[in-house]
Amino acid sequence: MADNLELQRMRAKVEAINALPTVPSNLRKISVMLEKPRLTMDEIARFVANDPALTTKVLRMVNSAAYGFPGRISSVSHAIMLLGLNVIRGLLIGISVFDLMQKNMAGLWEHSCACAVAARCIAQQKKMKEPEEVSICGLLHDIGKAIVMLQFPSEYEQALREAKEKDISLFEAEKKYLAATHADVGLWLAQKWRFPANLVEAIGYHHRPQLATQAPLETAIVHISDSFVRAKGVGFAGDPFVSTIHPATWQMLQLSDDEIRDILTQIDESTSAAGEET
């Protein structure tokens, strides 16, 4: 069992990510920018516009099937207006950890994108006002895994191996080798990058949705999306198992069979579309 000191030490290390030599420079730049207390829309727009490769990636993502505005967003400013600053922050982080994910856990990106699609679908079914923000919660829920692999590679290697050998979930195995889980790490980072409370909670409590106090609905949605994506077998998040959906979450969301079928179909369509784009 980890004690508080170990936890604090781990948190301090995670929060010092900008100083880590092995952190990719694009992630570092975005991390530094997002920490700023009064970041404006203009600053973000300019940051992206100064990097043509990043602009292309952002536009490709916002125009993909995952966001429901296929082919209609032509500039980053337009994207910010339509989707909001939080969604763009989230996309920038997502894009900058893509390489890390591909390199260190093949299938994690696909799992994350599918969660983004499922989360957005459920948010729309529940007539939420900002389904794209909920989608970003889905996209980034496992970002802690990418950062833990970067900062604590040997511990995570062991956790992955244990999960595989003992047929248990990675979430369980992590606890043996690390003072905190990938969900905790994701929460710390989301706070560092000044994400709003709903995103912080959805990332931090996606395995234990009953702990969410400020955003129980978004957290519930990410929790259930994670299970649905695992149920469908899309991508790989460290173990192949379908995690139990917390009964209270199942009750809260009250998804009908048809709604679930719709979610599965949308996941399917987005993965086949993504396959064609890459």
Partner: peptide, 19 residues
């Protein structure tokens, strides 16, 4: 194989059927 750890939970089995 994916559902092997949740066989005892009715709501998970209901989900499995739909999948």
């Amino acid at each position: 194989r994916r559902f092997q750890h949740v066989l005892d939970q009715p709501h998970m089995m209901a989900l499995k059927k739909i999948v």
